[in-house]
Each structure stands twice: as structure tokens, then as C-alpha cells.
Design a protein around this nucleic acid. Structure first.
Lengths: 374, 374
DNA sequence: TTGTAAGCGTTATCAC
DNA sequence: GTGATAACGCTTACAA
């Protein structure tokens, strides 16, 4: 390794060096054209440095537009980089900077319109702000959720948006993240026992308005088919349902409430048993999945909707609408919730220094009534 | 930087060094207990090496169970690593090995049961074989697809499974991947102009059987609502439809065929116009999305299904079943297709040397008839 | 059996 | 204004 600075002079020598550069350039150019460009390996900053006979640091600085590089060098580097289709290696960057310009999302299930639309909301915001989104599924299992959280951290995502698995009653793995100041936003299915950043739908109002609507339709025995009792969404909706009954002087009958997991047979059994033993004249159902399961179950019993039993579910507008335009719905504001969660987590990531204080963002729900005839 | 090899001798000096080691260990141990374990940074091989006063290479080898390490050292390292909850940094590994033990999946839309279930199939296989799955959406846009392909490569995924965007009539970006010998499997929406690895449903048979069924029900004017004409799935289904008509001596009436994009209004208009001007007595519809759009549109016209018009669509069993148990379906074998694609791409990745020759895997479809009464 | 050092692609900190 | 060098975490020749 030699440095010639100050020892080089005279036309002849410079000329040689100049020729040397040209040859070198040409050789590298050929190499790039053949092996490099066409085979898997991609162009690196080093390749550019060699080709242009300058140092990698200069290339790096030129590419990031550093002020200390001369305009000519800058131009040369940038144009050459473009010509060989240089792309910085995000993995090398992640290793160096210990971050990945990406956020993780853990949802119970992707094959669920609520979550897939929420992901669309998240992606829209994330991409606008220069982040990638990496998706993980817990499949409603606590264990997989824990594993996913570990992966998310190993992959050095800069933040995490999570909706709890139906199974997750322990939240130590998340408390630990919080303790480490890792940017974390809870989404839809949030843990009540942790304070932190949360984005939820206005489940209380949704349930209240839907119940009120059913009552105003003259319904008196409104069944409430809902999710597992330890989820906060369950409790909020139950409260809205109860308050609406109370405000309209109807009794709260516990035997009209059923807590369901997400399995289909369970909904079938519960609906059949209810209709047989408790004569409900209306159903208010929770979440996308539960709503669909119950809707199918009711249809199967042969009861006419809405003539014999009214039906209104928390669900995705699109799904409900497409398959039965008469289906009234408490719209789950999936996309908006996703957007809000993404904005929140990115704000936390980027303003890491000036602390933001934990807060809960409540996205309004809307009750869409499709068929008010009885 | 100094080397003492050969210059160290004498009891006193060794003793000092030994004491120095002990102190150092203790210090590092404290550090690990406090800052390292509890704050974001995770334990590295270096930390372990320091703590145990051995070299990083020894640690590395011990952890991967190399035969050249003494059993005692191995035990020591492995136990210590466990005790501090060491996890190898996958990013560093990716950088070193120029691969990531992950496969990319590009689908048009995640909020589509066919694709989200296919992803479930892919994930199941991939995880079993120690790979991660990274999901990208093209949102039916050619441009986004090209960008996604670039990202996929930058992220150094080891292989790619792709279902073309509704928009993608050019496939240069994929031909390029193929030319570079990048492990690539086409899935469901495959390019006809490229030879390569493909996994598709048996669309021809599905359409043939469904049409045959409708004919046997006494239908004579069967409309075919399908996807854009340049997609191979479209052509295959059309062929099945035509052949079934021919085999049963029914005329093929071009005015009963409609090519639809994936937008809802389009389906509505087409259905209304068909019913008004061409009196179809049955509908055979393509893909999940088109099927649902058309089903909703038919319902809206007020025509009774199946009394006035029969309906059978290529769709996801679960969706169709849940929302209308009477809906007959050509089942899209989403999960199986995903599994098959994953197996294929992993085989290609892992047997990179002994070449596998391109092939097309055809997954059987099944026609499920739900309501045969007229 | 173990240690040293180079390298994966990039940037930051020094020099000069 | 530019170049050497170290560092991010890990593996692997090559030495010892």
C-alpha cells in the first residue's frame, strides 16, 4: 500500500497514471457488465470506488450528498452509481446502525379482513415515511406470540404494533419490551393491565348505538354473542350493551350473553341453544369472525333475518356488504386504526429523545343500518 | 497493539495477569447483568468471549457444536450463553452469508382470503424448514410489483413466490430474476410467456365441472364472468367452460362472457346489463373477488338464487360457506397451493447445485355443490 | 484445541 | 476535499 501524494509530478507520470485509470475503469466496467450485473451479487460501494479509483469513504459521502465533497466528484460518483444501478445494502446498514427502518406488526391472523385491512392502513403510512412493514401471525396462540416478539427484536425492527392473541392472558413479554423503552403500540386487542400506547375502536359507543337501534326497532330480547371475557374489547362492548338496555328500561339478562372463542362450531351450538331455550328476537355480535360465524349459524336455524331475529354485528363493512347487502353493521374502522397506530409508533421511534407520554387513541365507530324494516 | 507471545515468563507476572482476568470477568459480568441484559442491546458472541476470557472464534465454534472444541469448553460456553440468553444476530449472519433464511412472497392483496390462506400454507412449510416468510403486496399494480421485486432482492431473501398483479403484462423484471438463477416460483397468476416453476389450480377442470353441473341442472344460457383476458387463469377457465358447452351440445355465445377487473362497480354494471339484455339462467364466475362482486350484484338485481339464476363461483370455501351456505363453489385450493409453492421454492434453494428442471404443479380443484334444487 | 485476522457493506472518525 | 481505518456481529481459513 503506497501513497504518492506529493511525490507525483511531471507530465509523463501523470499521463501514465491517467492511462492506468482508464484501463482499470474499462476492465471493471466490463466485469460489472458481465458477471456483476447479471449474476446475483450486486454492486457495492467498493466496486464503485475501485472503478473510479477513489476511496470508499469518498463514494459513501458523495452518495449521501455530503457537503465536503467537490461537485465534480459528486457528479462523477452519482452518475456512475446510477449507471451500474447501485443499491445500498439494507442489511449492512441495519448491522451498522442497529436498526432497520422497518416496523413489525403482530396480528392473530392475516386471513381476517379486519386485520388485513388494518395492515393496509399501517403500510400506507409506513411507506410514506420510509419504513417497511414486516408481518407476523400469532394464530391466536400465546406461545407463537412470544416467539414472534423475540423474532421481531432479533430482526431489529424499529418498533412494533401488536394485537394480542386470543390466548394471551400473560403479557410479560410485552411488559419487558416496554421496560426496555422499545417503541410499542397496542392495537385493537390491548392489555388492560399495561399502560402504554394504544389504538382502539370505540367499542363502547358502537355497542351502545347498535343496541339502541335494535331497541328502537322494537326488539326486547337482544342476545349478545361476544369474544372471550378477558379481552378488553369484550368488556367495553358488554358495557355499551348493558348501558343501552338500562337507558331504555330493559332488563339485563345474563343468559342472553355468550362468550365465544373463534371456532365455528362453538357459535353454531350457542346460537342453536339460545334460539331453542331463550327466544332472542335480536343478535348483537362482536368482532368480524364472531359476527360471521353467528350469522351463518342463525341462517342455518332457518330463522328469517331480519323478520324473525334482527342481526347486527361488529364487522368489516366490505365483507358484510358484499355477501349480504341487508346486513347491518357496526363498522370496524380497520384502516383508520392501522393508520393511527402506524403514525403513533413512528412518532415514538423518531422522537425517541423528547419523550411522548402513553396515550390511548380511540377511533370512532359507525353503525350502518341496512335494513330497518321488520 | 502488542503481542506478548514468548516474552511472558515468571510466576509473578502470570499471577498478575491471572488476577487481571478475574477482575475483568467480574466487571463484564456486572455490565452484562445491568446494562446489557436490561437495555435494548443484546448479548453478542464478543461479550461471551470476554466474559469467559476466550476468543470469539472459540465461542462461535462451541455454539455451533464444532468437533474441534473440547467438551469442557463447549459446555462452559453453551451454558453461559444460555444463562445470558444469547441469540445470534440474524442480520450479521445475513451480511456474512449473503442470505437470510427467508423467502419473499409477493401477492396482489393480502385482504383477500385466497391469498391470505395461501400465505398460511406457505408459512406452515417454511417454518417447518427453518425459513421466515416476508410478505409484500403489489396492490394489483405493475409498478409496485417491480419495486417489490427490487426490495426482495435487496433484502437478500433466498427465494421468491409471486402471484402477478392484475396489471402486469410485462414480466421483464421476473425474466431478469430467472436469468440470474434466482429461486423463483410463480403462483396462481402465472405468466404464460415465461417458462419456469409454477403452481396453479386446475382451473380448466374446475370450470369444466362447474359448467357441466349447471348444464345438468337444466341451465342453457350460462354467463361467464371472469378476470382480465391476458391472465392465464382466465384463458384456462374459459377453455373449460367452452369445452363443457361443446361436449353437451350447447352453443358458445360470446355475448355471455364478460372480462372484469377487480372493481366492484364494474361487476354491478356488467351483471345488470347482462340480465337486462341477455337473459342468462346461470352464472359461472371466476376468482374469489369476481365471484363475490357478482354474487352481490345478482342479489341486488332482485333475481332469486338459485331459483331464477344459478350461481357458482371460483372462491374460497370458507368465505362462501360462512355467508351463504347455499353458495355452490369451485374451491380454490389456496392452502395446498401455498404449501406446494413453498416446498418447491425451498427445494430449489437447497438443491441449488443439482439443478431441478422447471415444472408446473397443478393442484386439483373440487366443485362443491350446496344447493341442487331448482 | 484454541487464537488471530480477514471479510461481508456501510458509515463515522480521524488524519492529511 | 479525500483517504485510511475501525466498527457493527458473525464465520472461517490459517496459525500456533
Amino acid at each position: 500500500m503506497q501513497t504518492f501524494s506529493g511525490t507525483l509530478s511531471g507530465d509523463r507520470l501523470s499521463l501514465n497514471i491517467f492511462l492506468g485509470r482508464l484501463n482499470w475503469n474499462f476492465l471493471v466496467y466490463l466485469l460489472l457488465q458481465t458477471s456483476k450485473t447479471s449474476i446475483l451479487e450486486s454492486v457495492t460501494i467498493k466496486d464503485i470506488a475501485k472503478a473510479l479509483n477513489i476511496s470508499t469513504s469518498t463514494v459513501s459521502r458523495a452518495l449521501r450528498g455530503s457537503y465536503e465533497i467537490s461537485p465534480e466528484t459528486k457528479k462523477l460518483v452519482i452518475e456512475y452509481a446510477e449507471s451500474v444501478n447501485y443499491r445500498p445494502n439494507p442489511i449492512a446498514l441495519s448491522l451498522k446502525e442497529n436498526r432497520s427502518r422497518s416496523i413489525g406488526v403482530i396480528v392473530p391472523e392475516i386471513a381476517n379482513h379486519f386485520f388485513s385491512q388494518a395492515i393496509n392502513g399501517i403500510e400506507a403510512i409506513a411507506y410514506n415515511r420510509g419504513y417497511h412493514v414486516v408481518i407476523f401471525q400469532s394464530h391466536e396462540s400465546y406461545e407463537r406470540e412470544v416467539i414472534n416478539v423475540a423474532h421481531v427484536r432479533a430482526r431489529k425492527v424499529d418498533g412494533l404494533i401488536i394485537s394480542l392473541a386470543g390466548d394471551s392472558q400473560q403479557v410479560d413479554h410485552l411488559a419487558k419490551l416496554q421496560a426496555e423503552d422499545f417503541p410499542l403500540v397496542f392495537f385493537d386487542r390491548v392489555p388492560e393491565e399495561l399502560i402504554g400506547f394504544k389504538v382502539v375502536a370505540d367499542n363502547y359507543q358502537g355497542a351502545y348505538q347498535a343496541t339502541k337501534h335494535l331497541i328502537q326497532q322494537g326488539r326486547k330480547r337482544i342476545a349478545h354473542m361476544t369474544s372471550p371475557p378477558f379481552l378488553s374489547i369484550t368488556r367495553e362492548r358488554l358495557a355499551g350493551y348493558q348501558d343501552a338496555l338500562r337507558d331504555h328500561n330493559l332488563p339485563f339478562d345474563e343468559s342472553l350473553v355468550r362468550y365465544l372463542s373463534f371456532r365455528q362450531e362453538e357459535a353454531f351450538q350457542a346460537v342453536h341453544q339460545l334460539i331453542r331455550d331463550h327466544q332472542p328476537d335480536a343478535f348483537l355480535t362482536a368482532s368480524d369472525r364472531v359476527a360471521l360465524n353467528c350469522f351463518a349459524a342463525i341462517k342455518e336455524t332457518g330463522k328469517k333475518i331480519p323478520e324473525e331475529v334482527a342481526f347486527i354485528g361488529f364487522s368489516n363493512l366490505k365483507v358484510a356488504n358484499l355477501l349480504d347487502p341487508s346486513l347491518s353493521t357496526v363498522v370496524q374502522p380497520a384502516v383508520e386504526m392501522g393508520q393511527s397506530a402506524a403514525e403513533l409508533v413512528l412518532d415514538i421511534i423518531e422522537k425517541k429523545n423528547r419523550e411522548i407520554t402513553p396515550r390511548t387513541v380511540v377511533i370512532p365507530t359507525e353503525v350502518i343500518v341496512r335494513n330497518s324494516s321488520r
